[in-house]
Amino acid sequence: MAKIKGTVVVDTERCKGCDLCVQSCPQSVLELNAKVNSKGYHYSTMVKEDDCIGCTACAMVCPDAVISVYRVKTND
């Protein structure tokens, strides 16, 4: 059966660690990293890569437009 797989790329240096993307993800894919960027913000990171469906919810609510989303249909 065709499945939707997605992934995101976070521009970690521009991320402000606000947590809104983490809270918006229906698949609980994202978390704030224990590490910080050069400004001291805990940036957003994928922790459950396999569960991303590329729905763009995280990217659309990000106030700093730092998330890019990719999505593909697969038969695996």
Binding site: T7, V9, G54, T56, M60, I67, V69, R71, V72
Partner: peptide, 18 residues
């Protein structure tokens, strides 16, 4: 399918507007 397989320009569905 790995992250690298999905990360192709043709699969891009959202990015920061120019």
């Amino acid at each position: 399918m790995t992250k690298q397989d999905i990360l192709k320009p043709e699969n891009l569905v959202y990015q920061k507007t120019k």
